[in-house]
């Protein structure tokens, strides 16, 4: 049996950690785009669309992320798409992220006063202009801290992708544990690495919250 030093463990985890970062970023960016589209069509106000988006959010917030990934992983092949764990994880996490972000942002858009909408409408602006020039710039300031805060949830969510066989930090931890029989050290290192990714994000979100509160005063 080959010997694993602590450095070997950390080095191999760092290699796998790149995939955690990449998956988080991809899911967050794509989820943000989908979330923004959902927010737009929802705010535009067709009652059927509103109902659909509400159901979409309810579905993804009311079921486990693991089940969502399983359904994507086993469901897409049934419609003829052969998906790798990477594609399934990206797709599933994108949907998951979009549902949460669209809900967070809805609250921010709704916090912009009704008078703002009416004033801009009275200036003859159409929906796109109202969104672009009046509502989104104001909503954006409120939206940034909780959005950064949610990015922590996305990073932690990527750990679940290990279960459908995507080799990221957690999966690498399991594989190294099976080779070294040192679960305490390995999972300890895995936890530390997640912490090193997530804690700065948490601190940044808190910093932004404080900053925003001062501005609001």
């Amino acid at each position: 049996m080959s010997e694993f030093s602590l450095w070997d463990i950390v080095y191999n985890l760092l290699l796998a950690g790149r995939w955690t970062v990449l998956l988080s970023l991809t899911a967050f960016v794509l989820g943000g785009i989908v979330g923004l589209l959902l927010l737009m069509v929802r705010t535009a106000g067709n009652p059927w669309v509103v109902r659909f988006v509400r159901g979409y959010v309810e579905l993804f917030q009311g079921t486990p992320l693991l089940m969502q990934l399983f359904i994507v992983f086993f469901g897409l092949p049934l419609i003829g798409l052969d998906v790798s764990p990477w594609v399934a994880a990206t797709f599933g996490l994108t949907l998951f992220t979009s549902a949460f972000l669209t809900e967070i942002w809805r609250g921010c858009v709704e916090s912009v006063g009704k008078g703002q909408w009416e004033a801009s409408a009275s200036l003859g602006m159409n929906f796109t202009q109202q969104m672009r020039y009046i509502v989104l710039p104001q909503a954006l300031r409120i939206a940034i801290p909780p959005t950064v805060g949610f990015s922590v949830q996305v990073v932690k969510g990527t750990a679940v992708a290990s279960i459908i066989g995507f080799v990221e930090l957690t999966k690498a931890g399991t594989m190294i544990t099976n080779a070294t029989y040192a679960p305490f050290t390995v999972y300890g290192c895995v936890a530390v690495m997640y912490f090193l990714i997530c804690y700065p994000l948490s601190l940044f979100a808190r910093h932004l919250e404080g900053k925003f509160r001062n501005v609001a005063r």
């Binding site: 922590v152 990073v155 932690k156 969510g157 990527t158 750990a159 679940v160 290990s162 279960i163 957690t170 931890g173 399991t174 544990t177 679960p183 305490f184 999972y187 300890g188 895995v190 936890a191 997640y194 912490f195 997530c198 804690y199 948490s202």
Partner: peptide
């Protein structure tokens, strides 16, 4: 520590570690 690490890793740490 808990809020910035995934539940799955906490679970593995408790069960295997």
């Amino acid at each position: 520590l808990i809020r910035n690490t995934p539940f799955l890793v906490q679970l593995f740490f408790i069960f295997f570690g």
